[in-house]
């Protein structure tokens, strides 16, 4: 169990304690302020080198991590390879060894293979590894920024700040996660974060998109989507990968929309204060209707914006937090 991210790699949220999560959220609060300044830069990681290795397509996560590193004054080595390491002809180990030889303090890794971040942390044990999404396994900074966004929005509504709210706001909070739970690293990280913070989590999905072991997850499975929408304080939508809808896991995207899409009709029946979240990129018209997206846009944009302070917090704690460096 990781009780503080200081000096640690971040591979998964499964073994991260409530205190460690709150430490990241609280640290991120101070970086929100930095991002509002005219000069959006602090010298916290000056002279440090962060390698950003994206072996899978990504826009927002990559931009967000690199922006975060730069705002902390770190030097960023950026490598984007939108194909498997094998196709490129160089193995993951060799690529990491090459980057490591240049002298780095941290690696931010996105890879389509589950476990890639853990493997890299074994290749370069002296380097902090931040998992930016590995296969269907984990996307820990997404889980952190989603928790951060929920806390931020609900605190503002209560006329207080996230810092003052601490973690109590999550106690008993009703969070519904909808869609392709089975294949989603975001769902795994979100559920780990929410349940560790004390929220009550429900999942709702077609039978084929629930994980085999869902009864062992810290969630309840809801079969009535419409009832669950009324129940929820927060609704987390997930991206339905097109290939899941082409006859493999659900009969069609239309049918998915019929059973689990957040349509205008469903949206109209929800409580007005319910938060709608989506990690992006969205399939308008599939998991969520375009008109609902526009109505919920504020929160989804806030999620994107919060990506930067959360990743600043993670990089700061992980890299500057190690004893040797401070």
């Amino acid at each position: 169990m990781i009780t503080s991210l200081r000096g640690q790699s971040l591979l998964s949220l499964n073994e991260v304690s409530r205190d460690a999560i709150l430490e990241v959220l609280n640290t991120a609060e101070s970086f929100v302020e930095v991002n509002r300044r005219t000069i959006k830069k602090v010298p916290a990681l000056k002279g440090r080198v962060v390698a950003s290795l994206f072996f899978e397509e990504s826009t927002r996560t990559r931009l967000s991590f690199e922006t975060a590193a730069k705002r902390l004054s770190a030097d960023v080595l950026s490598l984007a390879v939108a194909s498997s390491s094998v196709k490129k002809g160089e193995s993951l180990r060799d690529t990491i060894a090459t980057i490591d030889a240049l002298g780095i303090d941290a690696v931010v890794l996105r890879h389509r293979s589950s476990g890639a971040a853990l493997q890299v942390s074994r290749y370069v044990p002296h380097v902090r590894v931040i998992n930016a999404g590995d296969g269907q396994h984990q996307h820990p900074t997404q889980g952190l920024l989603d928790a951060f966004t929920i806390r931020q929005v609900l605190s503002q509504r209560r006329g207080t700040t996230g810092l003052e709210s601490g973690g109590e706001l999550f106690e008993g909070l009703r969070i519904l996660i909808v869609g392709d739970i089975r294949h989603s690293r975001v769902a795994r990280s979100d559920i780990a974060a929410y349940s560790t913070l004390g929220a009550e989590v429900r999942v709702c999905a077609p039978g084929t998109l629930l994980p085999d072991d869902v009864e062992q997850w810290p969630v309840t499975v809801a079969t009535d989507f419409d009832e669950s929408l009324e129940w929820a304080d927060v609704v987390g939508l997930l991206r339905l990968q097109a290939e899941r809808g082409s006859g493999a896991f659900v009969p069609s995207l239309d049918e998915f929309t019929f059973t689990h899409g957040l349509t205008v009709e469903r949206f109209a029946r929800m409580r007005p204060e319910t938060l709608i979240m989506h990690p992006g990129p969205m399939n308008r018209g599939v998991e969520v209707d375009s008109r609902v997206v526009d109505a919920a846009a504020a929160i989804v944009e806030q999620q994107v914006a919060n990506g930067v302070p959360i990743r600043m917090a993670v990089l700061y704690l992980s890299v500057a937090g190690s004893g040797e460096s401070s």
Binding site: N14, S114, G115, D134, G135, Q136, H137, Q138, R182, R185, R188, P211, D212, D213, Q216
Partner: peptide, 13 residues
């Protein structure tokens, strides 16, 4: 092997 562990590890079983 497919099961709780493969699901947690994000590996197809």
């Amino acid at each position: 092997n497919e099961g709780a562990l493969s699901s947690r590890l994000g590996l197809t079983g």
